[in-house]
Amino acid sequence: MRNFFRFIIRYHFLLLFLLLEIISFSFIFNYNQYHRNFYLSSSNKISGFFYEQFSSVVEYFRLRKTNEELLRENSELRNQLEKTDFLSTTATRFYIDSIGSQRYRYTPAKVINNSVNKHFNYLTLNKGADDGILPDMGVISSRGLVGVVLNTSDSYSTVISLLNTRLQISARLRDTGFFGSLGWEGLNYRYATLSGIPAHASPSVGDAVVTSGYSSIFPENILIGTIDEISINQGEGFYDIRVLLSVDFKQLQYVHVVKKTGAEEQRELEKLNEDD
């Protein structure tokens, strides 16, 4: 026993080093177990507080840009309104009950922390569980898809950015309807890669890529980006498509968190098939 203690004392530096590395690597490997723990993520109170204070200073410098963006979104929404008015005069509309009619509910939120140049990029928002935000809700901006809520505390939430190599989104070509999986390669923050589009789909540069609507996270037809470059993956019969993202993540300031009413219902129902 005495030899054992002597051994520990003699090599304490090396042993402690190995112990701490083992702890760190177990954090890394068990990422899926810990990443929902909000004490260990930037949605916790302390880091949320610092990020919020800092962003409230910085936002003054961007007011002009924010105004322009709001103006643009307003006119876009006004256009949509005209279209609906036109429809309502010609088509018969019937109302189901008020809960059933709105499938998605949007909550505005401010981005208080964001990055584009890391390998795993995350955003922190200034709204949390108190505002009805829950993990697995979608996040979009006026220009398109942003990410998925990962964690929430009472007043903050962390979002996996589309610019995170761990996020894959189910995406669809708007014109032809072929769908595939979209993810970020980890290098340029303007581009993502769409894979799984079959060789007979014949996509062309400039085509819009949108959300497929199959998941319970995003509404259908949310813009993700446009096709920038197409290359055929030899031997697999699928295209590798480089997509120019419609959201400029560097300029991101305000976003909407999407709650799909009935998302839990869809997930519960789909869970029944998982064992098959």
Binding site: S24, F25, Y34
Partner: peptide, 24 residues
């Protein structure tokens, strides 16, 4: 040194959502 290194790295990990990477 090791303990402080671990605490510093873990603090950064918490801010940046990269649990374990900066700590190691």
């Amino acid at each position: 040194l090791l303990i402080l290194g671990f605490i510093t790295g873990l603090t950064l990990d918490i801010f940046m959502n990269t649990l374990g990477i900066h700590a190691s």
